[in-house]
Simulated assay, not measured.
Amino acid sequence: MRNIKLTVAYDGTDFHGFQAQPHLRTVQGELEQAIRKLTGEPVQVIGSGRTDAGVHAWGQTVNFLTSSRIPVEKWPLAMNANLPPDVVVRDAQEVPESFHSRYDASGKVYRYQIDRGAVPDVFCRRYAWHVPYKLDLERMRQAAGHLTGEHDFTSFCNAAAPIEDKVRRVDQVAVEEQGNLLRITVQGSGFLWNMVRIMAGTLVDVGRGRIDPQQIPDILQARDRKRAGVTAPAHGLALLEVHYPTHKL
């Protein structure tokens, strides 16, 4: 058996998330259907993580086992000919059979986009949260600094999450301007359910003066979802990259 790793981009607007669900359109479902058309095999696609409904990706990583002899460099073209236009395979690589997209991931990069225009930008409506209020970027950057490092992120996790260990390492939280767009880029070892969206929503509350930047350490320490800010809408979030140790590839 061969283990094929794909780098996949998708517009999450019309999907019920990444993970396959009965009778619902999902990214995993579309990928598995395309592979089945190409190989005749009922494969299981393993993703690096489950993006929620409406969340996008530029660099989602998946892998699957196949006995197909399709040359690895032909996989992107072959897959894209059998995928809908809102899912694109950007790259393919043959990896060791032991490689696992989820368990071997050493880090991820997400980006959250905010449209700060007085009126919504119609061309950003699927990819940015419209926040037509003045935001204090310096305050947001101060707060972002408090979110870096290793912390228990219970306050920044969906309260319904079943995971008990909510300690994660965040390496960088950058707040950058590009015209009317504000981009919050978060890099870390891994992320909890809704964690980046809650971080983005909290930073917007900081920018609007609703939360003081110096409150962030106390919010983390509280381990209470109610202490952090709003959960930003899904459509502003995109998974940019998934990182792996070179010895795993």
Rank of each mutant, 00 (worst) to 15 (best):
R208Y: 06
G59R: 07
Q214M: 12
L24P: 03
H151G: 01
V119I: 14
R225L: 04
V87M: 10
D152E: 06
A118I: 09
F123R: 13
L220Q: 05
A143M: 00
V170C: 14
R139D: 11
L77Q: 13
I184S: 06
G17D: 02
R223Q: 15
Q28Y: 06
I46E: 09
N80M: 09
H56L: 07
A92P: 05
I46F: 12
W193H: 15
Q60D: 10
E177T: 11
M195D: 03
G179Y: 02
Y127S: 15
G149K: 09
L135Q: 10
T185N: 04
T148P: 01
Q44S: 09
P245I: 00
L83S: 04
H151M: 00
G236D: 05
L65A: 13
N3I: 06
G40F: 06
T231D: 01
M140C: 06
W58K: 15
I70T: 13
I184R: 01
G179W: 05
V204R: 07
Q60G: 04
Q215F: 02
R125W: 04
I219W: 11
A92H: 03
Y127M: 11
R141S: 12
P96Y: 13
H151N: 04
P76G: 14
D121R: 13
D52M: 09
V206F: 08
V119P: 01
T202F: 09
S101D: 08
L65T: 06
A34Y: 08
A20L: 14
P233W: 00
Q21F: 08
P22Q: 13
Y103I: 03
V72A: 11
L220K: 03
G107A: 06
L182S: 01
A228T: 02
G12I: 03
G117V: 03
G190F: 06
R25D: 08
R90V: 09
A234F: 03
R141G: 04
D52C: 06
T154H: 00
G47N: 07
I211F: 08
M79W: 13
E138L: 12
H130R: 10
V170K: 03
I70F: 10
R225Y: 03
S67Y: 10
G229A: 05
K37G: 08
F18L: 04
H247N: 04
N158I: 01
H56V: 05
A20Y: 14
Q172W: 01
L24R: 15
E150S: 15
K37C: 13
R208G: 08
E41K: 09
A81E: 15
V206G: 01
D86Y: 09
A232G: 03
S106Y: 02
I70L: 15
S68A: 15
L220H: 05
V173G: 00
D218V: 08
S98H: 14
M140H: 05
L77D: 10
V45Y: 03
D86E: 13
F99Y: 09
R25Y: 11
G117A: 11
A78D: 08
E73H: 13
H247K: 03
T26V: 08
R125V: 07
E32N: 09
H243W: 10
C124R: 15
G54E: 09
H243Y: 14
L24I: 09
A144R: 01
Y110A: 05
K37W: 11
C124E: 15
